Amino acid sequence: MSTPVSYFEQMYAADPDPWSFESRWYDARKHTLTVAALTRRRYRSAFEPGCSTGMLTARLAERCDTLLAVDAVPAAARTAAERVAAHPHVTVGTAQLPHEWPEGTFDLVVLSELGYYFDDTDLRTLIERAAGALEPGGELVAVHWRWPVTEHARSGDDVHAALAEAPGLERLARHEEADFILEVFTAGPARSVAQREGLA
């Protein structure tokens, strides 16, 4: 069974920043690395499901012409919307994933600390919808915690193993630490930054 929304609602009711994203160096560094891993200078249209309080959203906003960020918990979405209020090209809303997926296509989808909350069926749907929403040459960035967590349906490693097996996705980059895995996949032939710029 996927983690129920009530679990997250209770966490945000007890603390508006339940994972301490605003104060921990670990998360600030991880968000910096996540944005640094993006292989394109700029993206036309990006989607960030499970945006939480918008700390990563604010960083992504600097690299995107338009950005849609959603969270299942209204309180989290409100905090994220306040954080990016100075960016009119960013839209923040609520959605319960993977079933309430937005229409349209994107050249960037970001799955940050999300996949391990889903059971097998919902994770498969999440990956299928994320991959299916990518434009040709679009990128899917995934980053997940690796240590065991009781509330997680699976490990971060399992999420990335499923992404690696997904049809239509090719890995562009992988960064692995004891704490998390960060990977970039593309919908189309994998060409490095140097290859795209004619250097290799």
Rank of each mutant, 00 (worst) to 15 (best):
V73E: 02
V73C: 06
A75N: 04
A75P: 06
A76H: 04
A76Q: 04
A76T: 10
A76P: 07
A77G: 02
A77Q: 01
A77T: 01
A80C: 15
A80D: 11
A81V: 05
E82L: 06
V90P: 04
V92F: 09
V92D: 06
G93V: 01
T94K: 09
T94A: 10
A95D: 10
A95R: 10
L97F: 14
L97W: 05
P98M: 07
H99L: 09
E100N: 09
W101I: 05
W101A: 07
W101P: 05
F106T: 07
F106W: 14
F106G: 09
S112E: 00
E113I: 03
L114E: 07
G115E: 02
Y116L: 00
Y117D: 00
F118I: 10
F118D: 10
F118R: 06
D119E: 13
D120V: 13
T121Y: 00
D122T: 04
D122I: 02
L123S: 00
L123C: 04
R124H: 13
L126V: 07
L126P: 05
L126I: 10
R129H: 11
R129V: 06
A130N: 09
G132R: 03
A133V: 01
L134W: 12
E135V: 10
G137E: 12
G138N: 11
G138W: 14
E139T: 12
E139D: 14
L140V: 08
L140Q: 05
L140G: 03
V143I: 15
W145E: 00
W145L: 00
R146Q: 14
R146I: 01
R146T: 10
W147N: 04
P148Y: 13
P148M: 11
E151G: 02
E151M: 05
E151V: 09
H152F: 15
A153P: 01
D158W: 11
H160P: 12
H160Q: 15
H160W: 12
A161P: 03
A161Y: 03
A164C: 12
A164F: 07
A164S: 15
E165T: 14
A166M: 13
A166H: 12
A166C: 15
A166S: 14
R171Q: 15
L172S: 09
